[in-house]
Design a protein around this nucleic acid. Structure first.
Lengths: 221, 221
DNA sequence: GAATTAATTGAACGTTTGTTTTATTACTGT
DNA sequence: ACAGTAATAAAACAAACGTTCAATTAATTC
């Protein structure tokens, strides 16, 4: 046999990306063989090389797409407001939403950096740093304006990112809490963490008042 | 050749464990071959099998030792005080200290769970759950006594653990901050996160007053 | 309907993998 | 000095690895 009926390059490539994310998120990059991946796609291993010259090219493509998607999502979600508290809330909410929606690619992007070559590693890290810089800017602005109380901006930014990225470790979409409820609780924790004053907090709460009270009894435990 | 002069089973086993932690933390479990590990130890691959029947046995031994060490460290560091704020501070400080001291085994234990068989995975998770339960107990006690303000105990416990474990991602012992300074800042963030009242906070600060003021200018940035 | 291009198969290549077996040497107790 | 045990080397195993190549079929173009 050779070309199969109904075969389509674009569809196959998309299927490869999707299957690679699922398998690599579960078993890790090194543990996923090209043959196992091909089998999941329903194709022979050699066919993968039409779309990705090497296994590492595939990994890099997945990671770059993830990081660029994250940055794009933030650019789209970034509020017009210059209020640091509102911007921080938007940053956290966007981050949590994005990472829950893309659990597989998040796992791959966070765990498999060591499998990239030097050049590609630094390319990904550059994107990551650019994304994190936005958070540091928010924290710095908030601190200078006196609405946030942050000791060490770099350290606090890392702490926040680690905390809100950690959602994907335990969150399962079909369980106790909805994305909105989780986001709500993490927003509260983040605001406390950065010492957002009661004014800032209340301003935020008012905007999402419906959610807050709607889910209040579910959050308790 | 066969047995080498000065060879010693205990020393070899320790060397294997240590080299395995370093290599697996850097390259990942799957990417470290038994031959590469043996080469790092200065021995032939077959010699490894005298100490660990399979590669997975080695991984499991490293992980179990890590988790048991973490639990032991906490049992030793656990304060006599029943004050939830003091216990929380001790928990965070012990956690950060332990993870910075054992960065390699932390990386392995956090990243390579997927390479364990079902039984061994659940054995490790059992230890992890037991360790995390201590934190949840502290948060629950503090909330019931009214000295902490925690919305969702399980969720907050996960957030705290993810935040304070994340230290190892960026912390380098020879850079800007010392372990004590990092711990200090993370303690402040944790206390804010759980809404520890000013009483609780000040009681904690007083105990570590020397450190606080000594490093105040270094923390600013 | 013939020529061209796109998509895939199936077989093969040389390496590397985890692991086993056997033989050999160093050490220990008598 | 000798027997017994502990620690290792060296070679070999089948299986799996990433990747390449030529052949083959489906779709498209003219």
């Amino acid at each position: 046999m050779a070309r199969t009926t109904g075969s389509d390059g674009e569809k196959t490539q998309a299927a490869i990306r999707s299957a690679a994310l699922v398998l690599m998120a579960r078993h890790g990059y090194e543990a996923v063989s090209m043959r196992a991946l091909a089998n999941e796609v329903g194709v022979q291993a050699a066919a993968l090389y039409r779309y990705f010259p090497t296994k590492e090219d595939l990994l890099f493509a997945l990671m770059r797409e993830h990081m660029e998607g994250l940055i794009s999502a933030w650019e789209a979600a970034r509020p017009v407001s210059t209020d640091p508290v509102a911007r921080l809330a938007a940053y956290v909410a966007n981050h949590i939403r994005f990472h829950i929606d893309r659990r597989h690619s998040t796992h791959v992007s966070n765990m498999e950096l060591r499998s990239l070559s030097r050049d590609r590693l630094s390319a990904i890290l550059k994107l990551r740093t650019a994304y994190e810089k936005a958070l540091r800017t928010i924290l710095r602005d908030g601190t200078e304006q006196g609405v946030l109380a942050v000791d060490d901006i770099g350290l606090t930014a890392m702490a926040i990112i680690q905390m809100i990225t950690g959602v994907i470790v335990w969150f399962r979409p079909d369980e106790r809490l909805s994305v909105e409820q989780v986001t709500e609780t993490y927003l509260t924790m983040t605001m406390r963490l950065v010492g957002a004053g009661h004014d800032g907090n209340r301003a935020e709460d008012d905007k999402r008042q419906g959610n807050v009270h709607e889910h209040a009894e579910l959050r308790a435990r």
